[in-house]
Amino acid sequence: MMLRAIGDRSTWRVELAVAVFLIAFPWVFPIIGGYANLATRILILGLFGIGMDLIFGYTGMLSFGQAAFYGTGGFVTAYLLSTGMLHNTLGALAAGTIAAACCGMIIGYLCLRQSGVYFAMLTLAFGEVFYFLENSPLAKWTGGENGLPGLPKPVIPLGFTTLHVQSNLALYYFVAILFFVGYWVARRIVRSPMGAVLRAILENPARAAAVGHNVPKYKLAVFTIAAAYAGIAGGLLGIFQGYMPPDAFSIDQSGEIIIMTIIGGAGTLIGPLVGAGLWSYLREALQNLHGVGAFWKLILGLLFIVLVTLFRRGITGGITDSIGLFRVRRRTAAAHVEEAPAVSGEVQP
């Protein structure tokens, strides 16, 4: 269904396929032992991962600090809802998203003073700052090590009526709608002129700058957007669990979203969802297997190393690449799928 995520012509078909998948997912997933809550969790991580994919898959910036924004969005949303300051769930989500985007702008400004390995190290270090801040100095508001419990089920005033999202399935569709909007926006971004500049930065930052694009500004913009995605996903996590865990800020969280994005396929937007699905599903399935349960992370870690070593574009990328081999391309402009893997070692004329 997502095979055409990097298609060339049919814009709306991909969106339609994703929409159909999102509607059908909770009904199909139980066949292999999944359930609505697991599906919701996967969508939340998939939404988080879209941001990761925008900065890493499309722009080439490897951030190890995305948990900072996931946690920020989550805790701002959770604080507003659990204290009763806001009853409108969407309002609280918006506030959390904006807060995360603001943090993203500040951290991005600092980290983007460097690129490459330095950027990765800096984002990791700044991610840790947020973890420590949540843990003690801000514990009065965040609950410190205990996190924030007591988030109500989503309440959405629509003017003429007020929706109360109660059942697990309803919650799934609430998250699915937001995921779809997030996916649609991200796809618009990568297919816009801005998306073209981002890919130019991925392929060759110096050349992108030389033809007159303000590279730092674009990088900061996409970093801020990614932080917003992390923020809304964090907010949804708290609402979904009824509890905002401090783990959202941990380095493990930053690492896991990278792993999911890589396993699923970076530079595809839908890849992180595939990766999140595989990660979450395998985790559940392996944990229930006798004798293997303790090793689930080891197994997924090995899978990750193999994918990084051999299949740099992950599962979705691998599928789209092999399909691409059989397809006759009508326009060369659409051929970026094949160019993408070879970008890094390229020598400039």
Partner: peptide, 21 residues
């Protein structure tokens, strides 16, 4: 000979595997 991002990713993966072992 791979780009720095790949090196970071693979050492990061190695770290996870060794910690789990």
């Amino acid at each position: 000979r791979r780009p720095p991002e790949d090196q970071i990713l693979v050492t990061f993966g190695l770290a996870i595997v060794i910690v789990e072992i």
